[in-house]
């Protein structure tokens, strides 16, 4: 059974069956990337353009490794130093790249909806690698894949998403994916950083970190996205850390082994301390490893459509 879509624009556009298919395929790829020879020839005749109109380290490297381990040809593009700064439109930039016979586009863009817009105008398969404050579907997929690895199934698992929910595309994609897989979701953060109608997406809201951590099985600690905040949403980072930062004493005071996640990049000492990030309960580096396997699965499945 194939995916129900030709593009990965957002979790919103997927069905639960798609998620399960991606996870099952990623299981196989995880096996492959742990072999001595980590490469398979599946996408030997496919060319993929990575268009990053916004900075990224992890996601770009993860996508590029996934592409190369599938034997695809890869071209990279970063907005700085390109014709974008000369005033070219998105559609023109992409059409010029596609004229050089590119089959798939992986795009990160600061504007929400940019990948949807593109999918209406070009033929190539599009993978959204983050569009502004909207969605980051592969991050949600790898988060859920990592939780599935930890808990077996996400059915009934309680997941808290803590931090800057308003400006987080990771939060939105995660809420949608977790709900689709039967997990229970709660968001937690300062009232100014929680969107007002978030409950309509099926997420509970809490402003109390301790209460939230006592409730959940896993906590996804988000970064404060200062670069997207046009006004001050809280008095100071120090105050944020005191009320919503996770440190070892707080973690140890819980009477359970909470699973700690972080989509990266970490601001050590702000949302979580180093001791927590590097603790045994943290699966942050598993998330990164799984990211490559999940992205291989997505690219493989989309290339076949």
């Amino acid at each position: 059974m194939p995916l129900s879509t030709r593009h990965l624009l957002g979790i919103k556009h997927l069905r639960p069956e798609d998620l399960h298919l991606i996870f099952e395929t990623a299981d196989n790829f995880k096996d492959i990337i742990n072999r001595p020879i980590k490469k398979v020839p599946s996408l030997r005749d496919v060319t993929i353009a990575n268009l990053f109109f916004e900075s990224s380290t992890r996601t770009r490297i993860s996508f590029e490794l996934a592409e190369r381990r599938l034997s695809a040809d890869v071209v990279n593009f970063a907005a700085s130093g390109s014709s974008v700064s000369k005033g070219e439109t998105l559609l023109d930039t992409v059409n010029n790249i596609l004229a050089m016979k590119v089959d798939m586009v992986v795009m990160r863009h600061p504007l929400p909806g940019a990948p949807v817009f593109l999918s209406k105008h070009i033929r190539a398969n599009i993978v959204n690698a983050g569009d502004g404050t909207h969605e980051h579907p592969t991050q949600a997929l790898l988060d859920c894949f990592s939780l599935r690895e930890k808990f077996g199934s996400l059915e009934g698992v309680k997941v808290a998403i803590v931090g800057d929910i308003t400006h987080s595309r990771v939060a939105l994609s995660n809420i949608l994916a977790l709900n689709m897989l039967g997990a229970k979701v709660r968001v937690c953060g300062p009232p100014t950083l929680i969107p007002r109608h978030i409950a309509s997406l099926g997420a509970e809201v809490s402003f109390d970190l301790r209460e939230t951590l006592e409730w959940c099985d896993a906590a996804n600690m988000l970064r404060i996205q200062l670069e997207r905040q046009d006004i001050k949403y809280f008095p100071s980072l120090r105050e944020y850390t005191m009320r919503y930062g996770l440190d070892l004493p707080l973690l140890n005071s819980l009477d359970k082994k909470l699973v700690i996640m972080h989509p990266g990049p970490i601001n050590r000492g702000v949302e979580i301390t180093s001791e927590v990030a590097d603790s045994e309960q943290s699966i942050i580096l598993d998330q990164v490893e799984n990211g490559v396997a999940v992205r291989m699965a997505v690219l493989y499945l989309l290339a076949g459509t």
């Binding site: 194939p2 395929t25 196989n28 096996d31 599938l70």
Partner: peptide, 20 residues
């Protein structure tokens, strides 16, 4: 052999892989 096939783009749907 699923990921080693040479006909991914020529199939209607990608094949479901098995374990190695």
């Amino acid at each position: 052999v699923t990921f080693y096939r040479d006909d991914l783009r020529r199939h209607a749907a990608p094949l479901q892989p098995n374990q190695t």
